[in-house]
Amino acid sequence: MDAAERHVPVMLERVVALLAPALARPGAVLVDATLGLGGHSEAFLTRFPEVRLIGFDRDPNALRLAGERLARYQSKDEQRLTLVHAVYDELPRALADLGVPAIDGILFDLGVSSMQLDEADRGFAYSQDAPLDMRMDPTRGITAAEIVNTYSAADLARILFQYGEEKFARRIADRIVRERAAEPFTNTARLSDLVRDAIPQAGKRTGGHPAKRTFQALRIEVNGELDVLRRALPAALGALALHGRIVVMSYHSLEDRITKQAFAPGTKSDVPDDLPVIPAGHEPYLKLLTRGAERPTAEEVAVNPRAASARVRAAERIREKGLVA
């Protein structure tokens, strides 16, 4: 299948509506910080003929497939698309290299992509046996197998609890350490079976597959996802032009909490609360565009089950930070 057949963009119409006002001017620059298979980017390039799009992805295979999907938006006379092999916290360096001083919109569609889930040999899916890898960029970094086979029981329990919100983190970690002494872990099926066996029967009655939380936690640790997001969001907010907009789509509470915390300071004045008047230039520089985190409709989830856990937050820069707008 090509990229268009493999990827159904999550909450596409809502994402487009949130970013559209920032893309109205000719030459507006939009960053897709998580290009994936290019579904959201394709919609923006189609609906906004004068937009320039910069697409980031750490996965070289995703960049290749998205590049093929979006090739028609490139010509000798018109360069509307720039693809960047980088993690999205590298945004400031990449924009500087491209000579882009500010951006009008940016989209983060976080988590693992449809392509990565569907390719069994990547090791993201607990329901398919594969090498225990989980790297979004398979050319660099530590694998899930290295983590499972070398981290202490305490460190394994910590990441399972913090990143997977796994109640039985210590039981699972202790079982991993005991089992790896006999034979190192190399594949997903063995780890998935171990997690299922380590969790008490009562703990398996809700929450989906018993290994879901463990695999999520390992994937986050392998790719440094939360630390990357903590660095990337302030950088993205700092890169927004006046009236530029940011949309963040997350898939679990940890990502959503980080997003909420990153937006919060910009929505408040930077002077003491007891001042009777806020001096010019010290007003909030961000305006929230969503009330809390918006969720997909039941109709969309029925069509695209992977949208079920999506949460969208968005904000607009309403003044230049530190300057009178």
Rank of each mutant, 00 (worst) to 15 (best):
G111V: 07
L107Y: 02
G111T: 02
G99Y: 11
D77E: 14
A86M: 03
R80Y: 05
A94Y: 01
Q116S: 01
F108Y: 10
A94I: 04
E78C: 14
M115F: 14
L117D: 06
S113Q: 04
L107I: 05
V87M: 12
R80Q: 08
V112S: 04
L83H: 04
E78L: 13
S114T: 13
V112D: 03
Q116Y: 05
H85W: 11
A102D: 14
V112C: 05
P92D: 05
E119Y: 09
K76V: 13
F108M: 03
D118K: 08
A96M: 10
R93L: 15
L110P: 00
G99K: 08
G105A: 15
E119T: 14
I106N: 02
G105H: 07
E78G: 11
D97N: 15
D97H: 13
L107S: 02
P101G: 07
E119R: 12
Q74S: 14
A86N: 02
Q79D: 15
V100H: 00
S75L: 05
H85E: 11
D109M: 06
L95T: 09
G105L: 08
V112Y: 02
M115Y: 13
E78S: 14
I106S: 04
L81E: 01
D104G: 10
Y88T: 07
L81G: 06
D104H: 11
I106V: 12
V87H: 11
I106A: 04
Y73S: 10
L95D: 05
K76P: 13
A96H: 13
L81M: 07
R80H: 07
L95Q: 04
D109L: 05
L81W: 01
I103Y: 10
G99Q: 09
S114G: 10
A96K: 14
L81N: 04
L95C: 08
V100E: 02
Y73E: 09
E90C: 15
T82R: 12
G105F: 08
A96F: 09
G99A: 08
S75G: 13
Y88E: 03
L110R: 01
L91T: 06
V100Y: 01
A120P: 08
L98D: 09
D104Y: 03
D89Q: 12
R93F: 14
E90P: 10
L83P: 02
G105V: 07
V84P: 00
A102Y: 11
D104L: 04
S114Y: 05
S75V: 05
D118S: 12
A86L: 03
E119H: 12
R93E: 15
A96I: 12
A86P: 02
L81F: 02
D104I: 04
Q74T: 15
L107D: 00
V84M: 03
A94C: 10
P92V: 10
A86G: 03
T82M: 09
V84F: 00
D77Q: 12
D97L: 13
Q79T: 15
M115V: 07
D77G: 13
R93G: 12
R93S: 14
A102Q: 14
F108W: 04
L95V: 12
L107T: 01
T82K: 11
Q74P: 06
A86V: 03
V100R: 00
S113D: 04
K76Q: 15
G111W: 01
G99M: 11
V112K: 04
L117H: 11
V84A: 00
D109T: 02
G111C: 00
D109K: 03
G111K: 01
F108T: 04
